Amino acid sequence: LTVQLGNLEWHFDNPEQALKMAEELAKRYQLKVEIDNGTLKFK
């Protein structure tokens, strides 16, 4: 699973870790998370 923020990307083997990080980033920057083809992206 990949977490993508702008041109930064983090790759996780563990989806739970990816979701946890995505939630933290979304909270911190007040963004919405969307999943696009196995990639978590922020809007």
Rank of each mutant, 00 (worst) to 15 (best):
G6Q: 04
N14D: 14
A22W: 05
G38E: 05
Q17G: 06
K43Y: 15
E9M: 14
V3A: 03
K43Q: 09
F42Q: 01
G38Q: 07
L25W: 09
L40H: 01
Q17W: 10
Q30Y: 10
A22N: 00
E23N: 13
K20N: 07
V3N: 02
N7A: 12
L31A: 02
V3M: 06
G38F: 07
L31C: 10
M21E: 03
K41Y: 10
A22C: 04
H11F: 11
E9R: 15
E16H: 11
E23L: 14
K41F: 08
L1Y: 13
D13H: 09
L25R: 00
A26M: 08
D36H: 13
K43P: 03
E34W: 15
N37I: 04
P15M: 14
E16Q: 12
R28F: 08
H11I: 08
T2I: 12
W10L: 08
F42C: 10
A26W: 09
I35G: 03
L25S: 00
L31P: 00
D36Y: 11
P15T: 10
K41Q: 05
R28I: 08
D13C: 10
K27Q: 10
H11Y: 13
Q4F: 07
L8Y: 14
E24S: 13
F42G: 01
G6Y: 07
D36C: 13
Q4K: 13
T2H: 06
F12V: 03
L5V: 06
A18F: 06
K32H: 09
E34H: 12
D36E: 13
D36V: 14
E9A: 13
Q17A: 13
N37V: 04
K27Y: 08
L19K: 07
W10C: 11
K27E: 08
E16D: 11
L40C: 11
D13S: 12
R28T: 05
T39E: 04
I35K: 07
K43G: 05
E9I: 15
Q17M: 12
E9T: 15
E16S: 10
T39D: 03
D13I: 09
L40S: 00
P15K: 11
K41T: 12
F12E: 01
P15R: 12
A22D: 00
L40W: 05
L8E: 06
N14H: 08
K20F: 07
L8C: 15
L8V: 09
V33T: 03
V33N: 00
K41S: 08
Q4S: 08
K32N: 07
T39M: 11
Q30K: 13
D13L: 09
Q30P: 02
P15S: 09
